[in-house]
Design a protein around this nucleic acid. Structure first.
Lengths: 349, 349
DNA sequence: TTGTATGCGTTATCAA
DNA sequence: TTGATAACGCATACAA
């Protein structure tokens, strides 16, 4: 029910000029009389005219809307990424349409179709799952082949159907595991999201292998989402399973949940169990035992991603002929207290 | 650069029928031959036809897009609210356009204009600030008077220009303060967002007054956002100011930051300082001292809000003649350990 | 059951 | 500097 809104026609009629004149005047076009321009703008303001961008989009074939698909809210990093990108888009005159894909399993495809139908000028996609990504691979490829800018916010040691910007999670997991090993741990557990985190899994295994440590499936727990509760629960299972002295969790909330369980059991951290997380959330800095973790460089990632998107948008050449580019961002280790190496000074205000 | 996409015209030409036939067939209209309908749908699928909803919106005067304006990301409750509403909208065939208003101070107005220009079918607005809300009051009123559904997700003891659904924060703060008093605290500090939280401020004062306790401005700290860091910092200031034994924070992260500061100073919680937060985030359940807090009933709020929105959308009567409705949701106290009353059993899995 | 014609509000092209 | 006219892709009223 858009109620009768003011159109260019209305203000044209009021002034006895043509619609075209109004259109040009509102555009602040140079090739129009200053007086009439002012008159038009004045009346427009008086009538509270608001341009209909739907109509404009139809003729210009451009909506200035960018779609953003992300799995869900449990990972605050993804939300932060979305909002960070939103503000960058805004600075360039674009708005964001946000869709979450986790509602049902195959919703990612549907979300893509909706965004295409809405004629968005580009898409950022946080794939739900490497599995699903493979499944949508053809679709994504065809979207890109139609010169439609689509950027993936994930990646790894495999071929992607489109351009991508991502934190190198393999490397992150490798560094984290290596750190646990260096701190003297030999039985290191992994708490992670299964098919959502295959790269982290790979990095974990690679680091173990590098140190000639055995990969023990009993020390790996799969988790539904990256909440405290799941980390708490996973820790309870894993530690009962054996002599684990180190835990790598694929997210900080998982790590903090695990930390809580350990503390409740009277286990000391890091003396009895060392814990390391992922993402460097604020909660980790303020945890009871400040958490050692792996950074997720949101600002760097979103800057790269939006730059890439805008270059694709303004670029005229057929994307088909360009190899998909990938930008990796290298995560770094943030050492706090949960694996040893106390540095109390860090939290000074 | 929308590349040449398939239109109804293209599939009409391919089949030698009229556009109208195609339009009806794709609509699955009853008044069309089954054979041709199937044929059309087949070709549409083969050509990978995706309807142009921009064009459809122009003629139907309906976009099936709802705008959502929220201040920023520091409050995870607002994000959760947005995503919760997004999923409810989706179930009804609507999508959400997300805008954050905190970038510059007066951006809320601009966001409203953008959404109106984009012809969204309705708007949810989380006002940045009561102050700003007053400022935009006329604008919001005029939007509503134009029969444009706009719903505010805040409220209080004052007149609102449009329909609203909100947690009664006055009551929440009252209950929280009362609880602190009941636990024997007489010097109770408030950490809150200033003009963003006037209702909480009022509730705090009312509860003090009810117990004949003096309101002491030195025990009130204003904070930039609801992060751990701000809570940590505020606690350091406030506790140095005097003999505070209880802290009410307007958000759980603030409370947890304050908790951390106290612990680092060797203060026991709740024995030396009792702390209570707001929102009942997951982090509070898993804190080193599980946090007593006030619930924010996201699901209840979003259900009310979307129901109200859809009733406005389908309603044909002039909104001008209807008094703005308001739905208050009553917050409840969740007692954990940070104010006393230990209940260790709660966290069983 | 299908086709034709018109319009949605705007921009763009071409004359005047 | 302005005005008429034709698009944009789709839906709808009406005709056939």
């Amino acid at each position: 029910m858009m109620n009768q809104r003011i159109r260019q026609q209305d203000i044209a009629k009021k002034l006895g000029v043509s619609i075209n004149t109004v259109s040009l005047a509102l555009k602040d076009s140079g090739r129009i009389n200053e007086d009439t321009k002012l008159k038009v703008q004045e009346v427009a303001k008086a009538l509270n005219y608001i341009p209909n961008s739907i109509a404009r989009s139809l003729v210009q074939k451009k909506t200035y809307v960018i779609g953003f698909i992300l799995p869900s809210i449990t990972n605050p990093i993804q939300i932060e990424t979305a909002q960070n990108i939103e503000s960058k888009l805004l600075a360039n005159g674009y708005n964001m349409m946000l869709m979450t894909s986790d509602h049902d399993k195959n919703y990612e495809t549907k979300a893509l179709d909706i965004l295409l139908s809405r004629q968005v000028d580009g898409i950022f996609l946080f794939p739900t799952d490497i599995q699903d990504q493979r499944k949508n691979q053809e679709k994504i490829k065809s979207i890109r082949d139609a010169n439609y800018p689509i950027i993936l916010l994930s990646g790894g040691n495999f071929i992607l159907p489109s351009d991508s910007v991502y934190m190198n999670q393999y490397l992150g997991a490798y560094k984290a595991t290596e750190h646990l090993i260096n701190m003297g741990n030999k039985d290191i557990a992994l708490i992670y999201g299964g098919t959502r985190n295959t790269e982290k899994h790979r990095g974990y295994i690679a680091a173990l292998k590098e140190s000639n440590l055995e990969y023990n499936p009993n020390q790996v727990a799969t988790v539904q989402n990256s909440s405290y509760e799941q980390g708490y629960r996973a820790a309870s299972q894993i530690i009962k399973n054996g002599s684990v002295t180190g835990i790598l969790a694929s997210g900080d909330y998982l790590a903090l949940g695990a930390l809580r369980w350990c503390r409740e059991q009277g286990l000391r951290v890091p003396e009895d169990v060392a814990i390391i997380g992922f993402d460097d959330l604020e909660a980790s800095r303020f945890a009871e035992i400040p958490l050692t973790t792996i950074t997720y460089k949101v600002e760097e990632l979103t800057t790269q991603a939006t730059d890439l998107l805008f270059s694709l948008i303004s670029n005229q050449e057929k994307l088909t002929w360009i190899e998909p580019r990938r930008f990796e961002i290298e995560p770094t280790l943030v050492i706090r207290e949960s694996c040893g190496f106390k540095k109390r000074s860090e939290r000074l205000l």
